[in-house]
Design a protein around this nucleic acid. Sequence first.
DNA 1: TATGGGCCTGACCGTTTGGTCAACATTGGC
DNA 2: GCCAATGTTGACCAAACGGTCAGGCCCATA
Lengths: 210, 210
Amino acid sequence: MGASSTATRPRGVAREENERLILEAAEAVFAELGFKGATTGAIAARAALPKANVHYYFPSKDDLYRAVMARVLDRWLAAASSFDDSDDPADALTRYIAAKMELSRTMPLGSRIFASEIMRGAPAIADHLETTLAAWVADRGAIVRRWIAEGKLAPVDPKVLFMMIWATTQHYADFARQIEVLNGGRPLSDDEFAEATRQVARTILRGVLL
Amino acid sequence: MGASSTATRPRGVAREENERLILEAAEAVFAELGFKGATTGAIAARAALPKANVHYYFPSKDDLYRAVMARVLDRWLAAASSFDDSDDPADALTRYIAAKMELSRTMPLGSRIFASEIMRGAPAIADHLETTLAAWVADRGAIVRRWIAEGKLAPVDPKVLFMMIWATTQHYADFARQIEVLNGGRPLSDDEFAEATRQVARTILRGVLL
DNA sequence: TATGGGCCTGACCGTTTGGTCAACATTGGC
DNA sequence: GCCAATGTTGACCAAACGGTCAGGCCCATA
């Protein structure tokens, strides 16, 4: 199984480059049109590649979709770890909310794909929800309950708290269009977004902190 | 233009019945598969009607989709009026949150269609957002600002507050599948949902009330 | 420069889709 | 019992779809 078993090797350059190109194009198209609405032709066009080439790297549309979802879930897992950077509830929640808001700001497409996936019944990520996500919630839920027992937090179902954080932060990605309209037709500027982040964090903290 | 200008009239009975049947079927199919994923054939099958009959009442898929969206927006506007039932911020917010949660509980499909529509860029309801919704937010935003001036509410951008309410309450409809998984594979019972409603309202009120 | 494997793609195919249409059924008024 | 409007439907079509494939290209090695 060593690197010597195959003859040539430094060829994988084009492969990595094109896979990245296709994944980025697919992320945009899936986010805007949904799974069924997205076409491999549209993804190929956006990646400036022939359709057959897309099918060379990702045999089926479903394979490509799952690869895109995997990338999204990886990013989210990384952001979720910011919850563990502190054992102080105010710190931990502030950091986590900020990290999720930052993701909604810089990578809104993934959030939209995730939302569509859940609304379809989560056929492609059911196992991820049941294993990884459930475990994360169980672990952090225990921390939240400890904070409550220590008198640091108002008694609140950890699931309700996490759901509020997810809902609100992801809303800034999923409903960006609605927010833009209510902001006078202009997307939130960096400053406006930073201010929204601060207010969201402050409101949630006031809501659960003792 | 009187009712006498056309000859016969009491015939519209089948029309109303079938239109309702089709709209309900369409709501379910659009919610689950998205605009592009939904097929007129699937909608017809769910309504137990031939596809051609669906096209008799709604000439195009787009017409049908817009009719479904109009129904959803009507319901939401009705729920939104519960915000005006009281001039006390605690009352008004509690009622509004409860009304939105109730909608998420009893009519989650509409919420999902709305979410998909926004994520597509809101092509079918752009004008509704710019007129009706913007006006609602402007009016109620003024009320919120008055409450803040009166020292009843913490200083918060009304848009941030409304967005948190929409995001959290609609999350219970849009992400019902995720909630179900985190609830041990079982959807929230009536009691669990009522408890979630109470905790959401309490947390948001604590977050903004003085 | 011959060879072989990774890479690339135009042309093609079976299926599904939104939508049409001609023909048929039903109904209430005269 | 006839008529005309309303309602109903199987059969059909052009377009778009996901996916296939034979053949060509490029390049490191021998």
